[in-house]
Computed example of a mutant assay.
Amino acid sequence: MPQIDYYLALQSPYVYLAGRRPWEIAARHGYDLVLKPVDVAQLFPRTGGKVREERHPSRKDYAAQDRARQARKLGLRLDPAPLYRSANPAPAAYALIAAQKAGGGDLGAYVQAITRGLWAEGKDHSDDAVIGAALAEAGFDPKVADRGMLMAAETYAANLEEAVSRGVFGVPFFVVGEEKFWGQDRLEDLDLWISGK
């Protein structure tokens, strides 16, 4: 089955804004969607970018306005400055990697629960209880991350190296073969390209 590689970071507002659309596109075209969580704090400087704290205020102001517009367009609630934005993203990413390997649940529901929790519900995405509840909501064993922690940590590091080698420089980022699409606002283009348009 052909696949879409989806590079993502669960603390990203743009992954939240992407929502279920990556899964819908993959299902519509008979593609497998493979999730590859990455550490953007390491990805950005290695690919010419800057983490949010290092960006010029004009860039941060524009991004905040744009996120608010995108959220309104998509009918999503978005806290412009969530309390836990700077919390450690690794535990939620490890849980996603472990859940994907274990199978049996809905990865899209897990991603939505974590990102919605951070960007709309004031939840701490690094908290074990929040992660466990999101896994359970998505049909996974809430303890799946505990059993797969070492494998998940190794995969998380490997995903970063793979992302850099494939030209990924931000999230959400979608790769189909050699074709690349960056941003939730390019999902329509991904859909069209897979359709041959």
Results as ranks from 00 to 15, higher is better:
97 I>K: 00
147 R>K: 14
20 R>Q: 13
3 Q>H: 14
46 R>I: 00
86 S>C: 07
67 R>Q: 15
179 E>N: 08
66 D>P: 09
192 L>Q: 14
148 G>S: 12
42 Q>R: 14
100 Q>A: 13
116 R>L: 06
115 T>S: 07
129 A>P: 03
101 K>T: 09
4 I>G: 12
83 L>P: 03
123 K>Y: 00
34 V>S: 12
193 W>C: 08
143 K>P: 01
83 L>I: 03
125 H>R: 02
118 L>G: 00
21 R>Q: 15
112 Q>S: 12
48 G>I: 10
169 F>D: 04
116 R>Y: 02
73 K>L: 15
121 E>A: 08
189 D>H: 12
23 W>Y: 08
94 Y>P: 05
156 Y>R: 00
20 R>M: 12
159 N>R: 09
191 D>L: 04
139 G>E: 01
178 E>S: 11
76 L>R: 12
56 H>G: 02
176 V>L: 04
131 I>F: 04
62 Y>F: 15
16 Y>D: 00
176 V>K: 03
106 D>Y: 08
168 V>G: 06
10 L>I: 06
53 E>T: 07
197 K>A: 11
51 V>C: 10
127 D>I: 05
181 F>W: 15
197 K>H: 07
25 I>G: 09
50 K>R: 13
113 A>H: 01
18 A>C: 05
94 Y>V: 07
167 G>I: 14
145 A>D: 06
35 L>E: 06
116 R>Q: 09
87 A>I: 08
1 M>F: 04
91 P>R: 02
193 W>V: 13
117 G>H: 04
25 I>M: 10
193 W>M: 11
12 S>C: 09
87 A>N: 10
26 A>P: 08
12 S>T: 09
98 A>E: 12
18 A>Q: 03
174 F>L: 15
189 D>C: 07
74 L>D: 11
190 L>A: 06
60 K>H: 07
155 T>Q: 02
137 E>C: 09
150 L>A: 07
49 G>Y: 01
100 Q>T: 08
174 F>V: 13
154 E>W: 01
62 Y>T: 12
192 L>H: 13
152 A>W: 00
173 F>I: 04
9 A>G: 12
32 D>F: 05
138 A>Y: 01
126 S>D: 04
197 K>R: 14
125 H>S: 01
24 E>L: 11
114 I>K: 01
178 E>G: 09
6 Y>R: 09
88 N>R: 13
114 I>D: 02
104 G>V: 03
41 A>L: 13
99 A>D: 04
49 G>E: 03
48 G>F: 07
3 Q>V: 10
60 K>S: 12
60 K>M: 14
60 K>Q: 15
29 H>V: 10
195 S>Q: 14
194 I>G: 08
143 K>S: 13
74 L>M: 15
94 Y>C: 13
134 A>M: 03
81 A>L: 12
147 R>F: 06
117 G>A: 05
113 A>D: 05
61 D>M: 05
81 A>D: 15
112 Q>M: 12
115 T>P: 03
118 L>A: 01
194 I>W: 07
193 W>E: 10
76 L>I: 06
86 S>W: 03
134 A>D: 03
120 A>Q: 02
77 R>Y: 10
11 Q>I: 07
69 R>H: 13
139 G>K: 01
173 F>Q: 05
3 Q>Y: 08
171 V>E: 03
196 G>C: 14
78 L>A: 05
77 R>D: 15
52 R>P: 08
